[in-house]
Design a protein around this nucleic acid. Structure first.
Lengths: 159, 159
DNA sequence: GGTGAAACAACGCACAT
DNA sequence: ATGTGCGTTGTTTCACC
């Protein structure tokens, strides 16, 4: 089963998820209007989705470039040595690291970082080379920055 | 200037951003209590941050694995041909694509996708090979899934 | 899930600084 | 220009059906 038995993902729950992914601050009363339920009923459903771990949080999305973080980059870390746990902990603590994935294949570890300057990138790469060799790719643009997760078709539509 | 002249990023605005990145549904009144301002004053500041493009939205964060999307992957697309605009538009429409970056260097185009099955991955890769060759890396784990953007030190702390 | 009542929050406005 | 106080409107939360 892909979801808790207490939270069947019916049409209404999918719709609530879509609405909250689009505007997390929408009041329960307005959610209720859009799905045809009373506000308390919506609150109950949303709280169940939270408790079931389907909704993991509500986040204001912020534009780093408006806050002085002019660079965004991916750094692939090809790790040498066998201190992977130490590396993982250390990299996770770096304030520039927004996301950090462990992947299959050659890439292994990938960081998404935001930086105020090339100087800061230089300093970061020097810190990282303790753990292995790095490959840096700057983000030029984001054709898709975010997509709402929805029920979706079981089969993908043709191009 | 990295921000609008109407929205100086003082300590209070940074604190509001941190609070809203942690819990986007926090009421203005509670935000006010935490930063030592009245609710209307907070609402004013938050609305300015929205209008200045610092806050770009409020999103419920959802766990794809609890909704049947058991696979998450990065797909690097090494594009042949010169129909980059057509490719970008087509890839952007694919429902499995959660994020899509255009990067410097060899990697060029990178997709983060969520999938219900390996079968769906197979179908997606077949669709993508029209545009070039792909390299797929499955996400094994996410040591850092998200980090609050904060004022941060100008210089990064040592490891 | 719905309903009603009490507590709380959001919004607009006048006014103080 | 930014924050406060207050009154009105709308929302949340709890009981209970």
């Amino acid at each position: 089963m892909t979801f808790d038995s207490n939270t069947p993902m019916d049409e209404i729950n999918w719709r609530l998820l879509e609405l909250l992914q689009t505007d997390a601050r929408m009041p329960f009363s307005e959610l209720g209007r859009k799905v045809g339920l009373s506000a308390p009923a919506v609150a109950e459903r949303v709280h169940r989705l939270e408790e079931a771990g389907v909704i993991t949080g509500y986040r204001a999305q912020v534009d780093p470039s408006r806050l002085g973080y002019s660079l965004e980059a991916f750094i692939r870390l090809t790790c040498r040595g066998n201190s992977l746990e130490r590396m993982t902990r250390a990299v996770s603590e770096l304030p520039q690291v927004q996301e950090f994935w462990n992947l299959t294949g050659e890439d292994g570890y990938v960081l998404r970082v935001i930086l105020r300057s090339v100087k800061e990138l230089d300093a970061l790469l020097k810190q990282l080379q303790i753990f292995g060799s790095t490959t840096t790719s700057l983000v030029l643009s984001k054709p898709v920055e975010f997509r709402v997760i929805s029920a979706g078709p079981e089969t993908s539509p043709p191009l």
